[in-house]
Write a protein that binds this DNA or RNA. Structure first.
Lengths: 229, 229
DNA sequence: GCTCTATTTTATCAATCGATAAATATTTTC
DNA sequence: GAAAATATTTATCGATTGATAAAATAGAGC
């Protein structure tokens, strides 16, 4: 249930910084166990989907099934914890700052970003969980796409337009964003074919990224111009 | 379990043309019922995944749950029938021939193909089922991707190379194919964002296709040349 | 109209699921 | 080291699942 208008990279919504103040602090080992459960759940769910059983998760952790309910009151709570882990654990906040660094050309900033991003998310687990999550809960997928759009793709368009000497306009229309989405979607599908399906794909991911950005910069200027006129 | 090396668009593998010869021909109404069941199953599965219950499917058809087992011995058989329907029902064999029509430029042929293809598959049901199928059964996804690659994308590359006066080489390497896959993946993701997530996207699909092909033809020549050298 | 066959429903089973309560084991606190 | 608190297991419940057997209904052929 993340707010689609909230572009901060965080799932926390209710609990503040009251960790110290709460009456029964979790023990160290207990927090580790909670992490183990989420980790096993993420693996299991990524393999069979969120209909996967809590018993199988418990077996992987090496505990009994009712114990999970000590850490997560319901299965849905566990699933939400998995969302949080899989999405946030692999998001590097420094990416956002790097994209704004005008000491380097837009093109280079984005090449670097996609090298890091693909390295972070191109695993069978992340890719599969990501689609399972999207199919199960449109909200979570909307939220994540909103994140990509606001923090990454709109930045690309804005910075590129500035670099081209166009008006420094904050608003970026869906049409202006579309070529960037095409690049992004193409890369994600590359990861899908390679890491989930195990198909033979172009071997050099860096070359694919480079070619993709070539494609983008070949049409971007024309698209910006069209959408102004 | 389709053979990945089999590029024919068909699921039939065992039963030949023995429909007439078989002893107990299905009645007209009975075949219609089978279709209704598959149709209801496709809808239900596309909403909740293949863990969806046979009872819900029966309810949608307006019959009792055990009746389904008269038409499909197991749930897996029903699921396979859904695969068959969702994939084959929307595949137009004439696409393949059109792509080879050298009386029109490669570019135009592909623009027309993607207009038709996206029109055929851009529905929430097809898109969701497609991903559910891929997550559940890598085989089926591999098979479909193989289909796209062999019948569509390799054609694009071959025809384009001929048009450029390059050697008429039948072999198309994964690296040669990658830009075409990027275009394809980008378009599929556009459908996902628009028809599954309901996000605001560029409104004009034809413009998106045109821009995508612009991207492709801007880099393709360079990629071909690189992979020859 | 009767018979045979195909179709559909009723009733039910065994397995699996998420979840709860109570009993036991382990660790922390003083 | 006893008491208190936390962590974990055992046992189990009610609901749902895919699937089967048997009874009931409907329709075709003559």
């Amino acid at each position: 249930m993340p707010d689609p208008d909230e572009t901060e990279v965080s799932f926390e919504r209710s609990r503040g910084s009251t960790d110290r103040a709460r009456k029964k602090p979790m023990r160290e080992a207990s927090e580790q166990r909670a992490r183990d459960i989420v980790s096993a759940a993420a693996e299991h769910f990524s393999e069979v989907g969120f209909a996967g059983s809590t018993r199988e998760i418990a077996k992987r952790v090496g505990v009994t099934q009712p114990l999970l309910y000590r850490y997560f009151p319901t299965k849905d709570d566990l699933i939400e914890a998995v969302y949080k882990t899989v999405y946030l654990e692999r998001w590097d906040s420094s990416w956002e700052a790097s994209l704004k660094d005008r000491s380097r050309p837009t093109r280079e900033r984005f090449e670097v970003f996609y090298r890091h991003y693909t390295q972070a998310v191109f695993t069978p687990m992340w890719l599969r969980l990501s689609y399972y999550a999207g199919l199960r809960d449109a909200d979570i997928n909307q939220w994540y796409n909103h994140l990509i759009e606001e923090l990454i793709l709109k930045q690309l368009v804005r910075e590129h337009r500035v670099e081209l000497g166009l008006a420094d306009e904050a608003y970026v229309s869906p049409a202006d964003l579309e070529p960037a989405w095409q690049i992004h979607g193409g890369l994600m599908q590359y990861g899908w074919r390679k890491h989930v399906l195990g198909l033979r794909v172009a071997p050099d991911i860096e070359q694919v990224i480079t070619d993709n950005l070539d494609m983008y910069f070949a049409v971007a200027e024309k698209v910006y111009a069209r959408n102004i006129a």
